[in-house]
C-alpha cells in the first residue's frame, strides 16, 4: 500500500507543508514582505541600471552595454587606488572597534560602583546624529581653532599647531578614529549581550575544576563570544566598507585624493558626474565583495548559520 505513487505524493506534500514549515513560513512572511515592498525593487533597479550607459546629462542615449560599466570600473586606476584606501580604512576601523568593544564589554561585565553610569556614558557617541557628529569632529580636527591642537598644545605634547586632515598621511586614520568613536558603543553592547548569555554554571564548573581567571577567560569566555564577535565583525565590516557620511562631511575625498574611498567614488560617479550606470556597477562590485566577506566571516565564526 505504501509504495503507490499517489500515496507518495500525498506524503511528500504533507511533509513539505507540515506544521513546522507552515509556522516557519508564517514567521518569515512579515520580514520578507517588508523587504519585498521596499528593498527588492531598489536593488533590482540599481542592478538593472548597471548594465546601461546611463548618463543623466545625455538622456536620449541610454544604450544597453552588457558588462561594459563593470569592465570600465575595474580597469580604472582611480578605482583600485580607492579600493586600497577603503581596505586600509576598513581594516584599521574594524580592528580598533573589536579591541575596544571587547575591552569595554569585559569592563562592563564586572560589577563595580559607577558601572551603570559608565555604561550610559559610553552610549552617548552612538546617539549623536551623524551630521552633528561630522561637524563636531571637523571642528575638533580643525588645524587653526581645533580642540585637538588646542589640547595637545596646552598639554605640551606639541609645540606648534599640526595640520590634521590636511595632511594626506593622517586623513584616513583620523576619519577612522571618528568612525570608531561612534561605532564602538553598538559593538560593545553586542559583545556584552553575548557575554551575558554565557551560562554562569560554566564559570562555576570551571572554578571547581581549578581554572584561574585567565584560563576561564581563554577557555570559556573567548569561545562563547564567537557569535558576538561574528556579529560585530560582519556589521562593522559592512558599515566601514560602505561608510560615506564622514568622508562627505570631513574631507569630500580630499586633500587631493587622500580620502577618496570607494563609497566616495560611488557618490561622485553617481551624483557629481551623473553617471548612474557606472555608479551602480561600482556599487555592485562593492556589494559583491562585502557579501563575500560577510559569507567568509559567517563560515569561519558562525556556529550553525
Amino acid at each position: 500500500m505504501r509504495s503507490s505513487p499517489k500515496r507518495d505524493i500525498k506524503f511528500r506534500l504533507a511533509r513539505r507543508f507540515d506544521y513546522e514549515s507552515r509556522s516557519a513560513a508564517l514567521f518569515i512572511l512579515p520580514v520578507m514582505s517588508v523587504l519585498a515592498i521596499v528593498a527588492v525593487f531598489p536593488i533590482l533597479y540599481s542592478f538593472y541600471t548597471s548594465f546601461f550607459n546611463l548618463k543623466l546629462t545625455r538622456p536620449h542615449r541610454v544604450p544597453f552595454v552588457w558588462f561594459d560599466n563593470y569592465i570600465k570600473v575595474l580597469s580604472d586606476e582611480l578605482f583600485w587606488a580607492s579600493v586600497s584606501r577603503t581596505v586600509s580604512f576598513t581594516v584599521m576601523s574594524v580592528a580598533a572597534i573589536l579591541v575596544l568593544s571587547l575591552s569595554i564589554a569585559i569592563l562592563l561585565n564586572e560589577s563595580f560602583r559607577g558601572r551603570r553610569l559608565l555604561s550610559a556614558i559610553i552610549l552617548i557617541p552612538w546617539a549623536i546624529p551623524t551630521v552633528a557628529n561630522g561637524l563636531l569632529w571637523k571642528w575638533i580636527y580643525d588645524s587653526g581653532f581645533g580642540a585637538l591642537n588646542g589640547l595637545l598644545f596646552q598639554l605640551g605634547i606639541i609645540d606648534s599647531y599640526i595640520t590634521w586632515l590636511g595632511d594626506s598621511d593622517k586623513t584616513i586614520p583620523l576619519i577612522s578614529n571618528s568612525f570608531v568613536w561612534k561605532e564602538v558603543p553598538l559593538a560593545a553592547i553586542l559583545i556584552l549581550v553575548t557575554m551575558k548569555s554565557i551560562p554562569e554554571d560554566l564559570y562555576r564548573a570551571a572554578k571547581v575544576d581549578g581554572a584561574n581567571v585567565f584560563k576561564r577567560f581563554i577557555h570559556i569566555t573567548i569561545p562563547s563570544l564567537k557569535p558576538g564577535f561574528m556579529l560585530v565583525m560582519i556589521y562593522e565590516t559592512m558599515m566601514a566598507i560602505r561608510h560615506f557620511d564622514l568622508f562627505f562631511l570631513l574631507t569630500e575625498g580630499g586633500p587631493a585624493e587622500a580620502s577618496h574611498v570607494v563609497s566616495w567614488q560611488i557618490y561622485v560617479e553617481t551624483f557629481r558626474n551623473l553617471s548612474f550606470g557606472t555608479g551602480s556597477a561600482m556599487s555592485y562590485i562593492l556589494a559583491l565583495v562585502t557579501f563575500a566577506l560577510a559569507y567568509f566571516i559567517i563560515r569561519t565564526l558562525g556556529s550553525k548559520l
Binding site: 525593487f41 533590482l44 538622456p59 536620449h60 541610454v62 544597453f64 552595454v65 552588457w66
Partner: peptide, 24 residues
C-alpha cells in the same frame, strides 16, 4: 557592440523599470 541593443531614452527607461518593479 552595444548599439545594436535597445536604445531607450531616460523616461522610457524609468517607466519600464518602474513597471518591472510591479509598483504600479
Amino acid at each position: 557592440m552595444s548599439n545594436q541593443f535597445k536604445n531607450l531614452n531616460r523616461r522610457d527607461f524609468l517607466k519600464k523599470t518602474a513597471a518591472a518593479g510591479a509598483l504600479g
